[in-house]
């Protein structure tokens, strides 16, 4: 599903990732962890093609970064749902329109969009917030709207960058429950977090990073 081979990413003179190699199978639930600055966010950005590797090759869903044409990028991104660390919700649109956007981009009709957005909102437990604007929502609620937008297009991979970063324990547990449900439907999930509590005793696979190096790959 996802394969990194000797991937290096250098910002100016800062090496964010150094010769990283690993593979993730379809349907896996994987944590990416390590201290701040370890390269977790960079790794996710490489997967959703916001960054390009300086060296090495990344394979995603049958495509690879050596031969990928720029015009194919949008279609590849539709296979990848992203829960951004800063949410990236549009402040001038309602919850409904924010989630629907992911489907409008894919050219869906409004009728189909309506049903799918309602389903996604139900999954994250926010059906009653359909017509609110993002500013009127709490951090946890915004996080869940971002998740709804990421999964509404039924991507094969879901990436989340510090999804519990600013949330209290209850909210964080709620979010993790949603991810488990999504994973149970067959979606591959990668979560980048510096919070070890999230994966302690879960028995899930954890990739440990430090200063851009993959230092441990603990199979669950």
């Amino acid at each position: 599903m996802i394969g990194f081979k000797d991937v290096t990413r250098i910002y100016d003179n800062m090496t964010a990732l150094r010769k990283v190699t690993f593979g993730i199978e379809k349907g896996e639930f994987v944590y990416i962890t390590g201290p701040s600055g370890a390269g977790k966010s960079t790794l996710l950005k490489l997967i959703y093609l916001a960054e390009k590797p300086d060296e090495g090759t990344i394979r995603i869903a049958g495509w690879d970064t050596d031969t990928l044409r720029e015009s194919a990028i949008p279609y590849l991104r539709r296979n990848i749902g992203v829960v951004f660390q800063d949410f990236k919700l549009l402040a001038n649109r309602t919850v409904y329109d924010n989630i629907a956007l992911a489907l409008r981009i894919r050219g869906f009709g409004e009728n189909e969009i309506k049903g799918r957005v309602q389903d996604a909102l139900k999954l994250v437990g926010l059906r009653h917030k359909t017509d609110n604007f993002p500013v009127a929502l709490s951090g946890g609620e915004q996080q869940r709207i971002t998740i709804a937008r990421a999964i509404v297009g039924e991507p094969t991979v879901l990436l989340a960058d510090e999804p519990t970063g600013n949330l209290d324990v209850d909210n964080a547990a709620g979010i993790m429950k949603i991810f488990k449900e999504i994973n149970a439907r067959g979606t591959t999930i990668l979560i980048a977090t510096h919070n070890r509590e999230l994966f302690r005793n879960t028995g899930l696979r954890v990739l440990w990073f430090d200063s851009g190096n993959l230092v441990a790959d603990e199979e669950g």
Partner: peptide, 16 residues
């Protein structure tokens, strides 16, 4: 600009 960046990340084509 911000909106367009989000469009791109969600998989919008250039034509869109």
């Amino acid at each position: 600009k911000e909106e367009i960046e989000i469009f791109k990340l969600l998989g919008a084509t250039k034509a869109f």
